[in-house]
Amino acid sequence: MRLAVLALCLTLLAGCATPDRDARLQPGISREADVIAIYGPPVRDWPEADGGRTLEYSSQPMGRHAYMVRLAADGRLLGISDGLSPAGRARIEPGMTPEQVSRLLGRERSRVFFRNSGEDVWDWTVEPDQAGYGLRFNVHFKDGVVVRTTQSMVFPSRRFPGLDD
């Protein structure tokens, strides 16, 4: 009986694995087919200058991660990163284009154009810095390039509990 419970627990934990912490994927050994067999087709497939590719596994709008799976030209796994980690977000700099931002952060949660400022603001749901409140990372574009980044807290809704993420 204990063995059956242990097997069930391990199965459930494996289902919670994320690409960046999945022991089944080994850089230099695993291949594109292994990634797709475990995580399914990517949200987007970005070609790289060296002939390799980056498979995007974004969980937006409700999730808080955008896993970027980097493959060599021969399909071998080179590495996996979370574009929405604090380090990933820190790579966004003024002057970047929307495509450059998408390649780093993955698909955005939403886009809003502010007519008065002329800014197009994209946002991503990210892991909160403070317990209890949701957090959004915002990239402000003007004239087709990044002008700044901001963060905004998402406070719970009293009218619609649970819909504030």
Rank of each mutant, 00 (worst) to 15 (best):
2 R>T: 13
6 L>H: 06
6 L>M: 13
7 A>H: 04
7 A>L: 15
10 L>W: 12
11 T>P: 00
13 L>F: 12
15 G>P: 01
17 A>W: 13
17 A>P: 02
20 D>L: 00
21 R>K: 15
23 A>I: 10
23 A>L: 14
24 R>L: 12
25 L>C: 09
26 Q>D: 05
28 G>Q: 13
29 I>H: 14
34 D>F: 06
34 D>M: 07
38 I>Q: 13
42 P>F: 01
42 P>V: 05
45 D>A: 11
48 E>T: 09
49 A>F: 07
51 G>W: 11
53 R>N: 10
54 T>E: 08
56 E>T: 05
56 E>W: 02
56 E>F: 01
58 S>T: 14
60 Q>M: 12
63 G>Q: 10
64 R>T: 15
65 H>L: 02
68 M>E: 01
70 R>H: 13
73 A>F: 00
73 A>H: 02
74 D>N: 15
74 D>T: 09
74 D>R: 07
75 G>T: 08
76 R>D: 01
76 R>E: 03
77 L>P: 05
79 G>N: 05
81 S>Y: 03
82 D>W: 01
83 G>M: 04
85 S>E: 04
86 P>W: 02
87 A>I: 06
89 R>F: 03
91 R>V: 08
94 P>I: 04
96 M>S: 10
99 E>A: 13
99 E>C: 00
99 E>N: 12
101 V>D: 03
104 L>V: 12
106 G>I: 03
107 R>C: 00
112 V>W: 07
113 F>S: 10
114 F>S: 14
117 S>Q: 11
118 G>S: 08
118 G>D: 06
118 G>L: 06
119 E>K: 07
119 E>R: 14
120 D>V: 03
121 V>K: 11
121 V>S: 07
121 V>I: 15
121 V>D: 06
122 W>M: 12
122 W>R: 15
123 D>L: 06
129 D>F: 12
134 G>L: 02
135 L>Y: 02
136 R>V: 07
136 R>H: 11
137 F>V: 02
138 N>A: 04
138 N>S: 03
139 V>P: 01
146 V>E: 02
148 R>Q: 09
